[in-house]
Simulated assay, not measured.
Amino acid sequence: MHSSRVFIYSAGLALAMATSSLGATAAQAADKISIMVGGYEKQIYLPAKLAEALGYFKDEDLDVELLNEPAGVDAENEMLSGAVQGVVGFYDHCIDLQGKGKFVESVVQFSQAPGEVELVSSKHPEIKSPADFKGKNLGVTGLGSSTNFLTQYLAVKNGLKLGEFTSVPVGAGQTFIAAIQQDAIQAGMTTEPTISRMLKTGEAKVLIDMRTMAGTKAVLGGTYPAASLYMDADWVNAHKEEVQKLANAFVKTLHFINTHSASEIADKMPSDFYVGDKEGYVKALENGKAMFTPDGVMPEDGPKTVLAVLSEFSKNVQGKTVDLSKTYTTEFVMKAK
C-alpha cells in the first residue's frame, strides 16, 4: 500500500546524498509529512495546530503539512490510500481497522476522554435518554466516524437496535448547528466550541457529557483514549526517525497544554477558531483541557474500554480476536520524555 511512497522517499534521500549542492533542499523535501486532522478547529484536536503555532515541528527540522477533514473516517481513508502519512483522530479507528485486517497504531495519545457531548434540540424535550433515540435522526460527523461509533454504542446500550434510529452525517461547527436549527437532526454528537455555541443560544441541551474523565467513566465504563496521532504500522516501522521527531513535537505540545492556562493556549490559536467568541472558547478549553494526557502515553486501562465499547455494536470486531498491543505504541513518547 505504501511501497511507492517509501520508494519515492528512498529515492529522494539517495538523490540528497549524491548531490551535495542540492543536499539540504532535497533532504527537507524528503522530510515532508502530511497529517490529516479530523477537523482542526475542534478543541479535541487542538494539539495539532498548537504544535505548528509553537514552532515545535520546525524545531525538529520537520516539514509538516496539516490538512483539514471535518470527519475522522474520511481522514482515515486518506491515510489508507497513502495520500497522507498520519491522522489526528480517534484511537478507536486503530481497533476498528484491525478488525478489517489493517494494522494502524496510535503513536502519540493526546487525550483520555472523548471530549464529545450528545446534544438534544430544545424542540425535542421528549428525548430524555438514549432510549428515546428510536425513530430519531441523530447527527454525527460522518458515517463510520467515532461520533457514529459512540452514538451507536449509546443507543444499543440503552436497548435499541441499530436500525431503529438514523445516523445523519452533518460534520461539525456551522453545519451541525444548521442541522439542529432546521430539525434535520433531533440530537447529535459534537465537540467544543460547537457545544458552547449551542448552549449559549439555548437551541440545544446536554444529554450525555463526555468532556471530563468522570463523565466518560460514568457513560463508557472506563478511561476512553480518544484523540491521537495514528499512523500505518508499516510506515511507522520504515520511518522511525521521522515518527520520533513527531512524537518529540507533540509531547512538548502536551506539556505546554498541561503547564499553561486556557487563555495562554487560546492566544496561540488562529482567531477564526474562536468563531467570534474568544471568551466562550477559553471557558470551554478551561473546562475541558484536563482530557489531554500530560505526556502522550496511552492510559493503561484505555484500550480495553474502547474494545468493550466497539464490541457492543460493531460487526468489524464482534467475534474477532483483536491484539490491542498492536493498536498503539509507547516507544516514541517514552523516548521523547
Rank of each mutant, 00 (worst) to 15 (best):
P169E: 02
E41C: 09
V297A: 00
N68F: 00
K102P: 09
T147E: 02
K315P: 07
V107G: 06
V306A: 00
L15W: 07
D132P: 07
M291C: 01
A48K: 04
F176G: 02
G319F: 06
E242H: 14
L54N: 06
K200V: 11
E164L: 00
G99L: 03
F133C: 10
S106N: 11
L13F: 14
Y56A: 09
A266G: 02
R5C: 07
F7W: 14
S122V: 08
L285C: 06
K157R: 12
L310H: 05
E192D: 14
K32P: 08
L54C: 03
T190D: 04
S228M: 05
Q181T: 15
S21A: 15
G296W: 01
Y56S: 07
G171W: 10
A233N: 12
A131K: 15
P270I: 00
A266M: 05
A249E: 01
Q186H: 14
I44Y: 08
V117M: 02
K268R: 13
T201K: 09
G288M: 07
E52A: 13
A11Y: 05
V275L: 12
Q318Y: 05
Q181N: 13
T212M: 09
S325V: 03
E331C: 09
A29E: 14
A53G: 07
A247Q: 07
K289N: 09
E300T: 06
V309R: 00
L285R: 03
Y230T: 05
Y224V: 02
M291G: 03
E300Y: 10
I195Q: 00
T223V: 15
K326D: 13
D31R: 14
Y224T: 02
V322T: 11
L50C: 03
E65S: 10
K200M: 12
A218Y: 08
G280C: 11
K337Y: 07
M291K: 03
A204Y: 11
A14M: 11
K283E: 15
L46F: 01
F292M: 03
L199R: 06
K100D: 14
E241L: 13
P299C: 08
Q28F: 15
A172S: 15
T166H: 05
H260E: 05
E116V: 10
T253W: 04
A24I: 12
Q174A: 14
Q182F: 12
E126A: 13
E116P: 02
E116T: 04
E286G: 05
H93I: 08
A238L: 15
M231Y: 09
T321D: 15
P294C: 02
S271H: 15
G55N: 14
N68K: 01
G173S: 01
A226S: 15
S146D: 03
Y328S: 02
G280W: 04
P70G: 02
A113I: 03
Q112K: 12
D277F: 03
M198W: 12
A53M: 11
L207A: 05
P169H: 01
K100H: 10
E192G: 08
D323L: 10
G173N: 05
A336P: 01
F57V: 04
V156T: 03
F273Q: 07
I177F: 09
S196N: 13
S4L: 15
K320L: 09
V84P: 10
S146A: 15
A249G: 01
Q186I: 06
S10T: 14
L143K: 09
A187S: 10
M17K: 13
V168Q: 01
I180Y: 07
H124R: 12
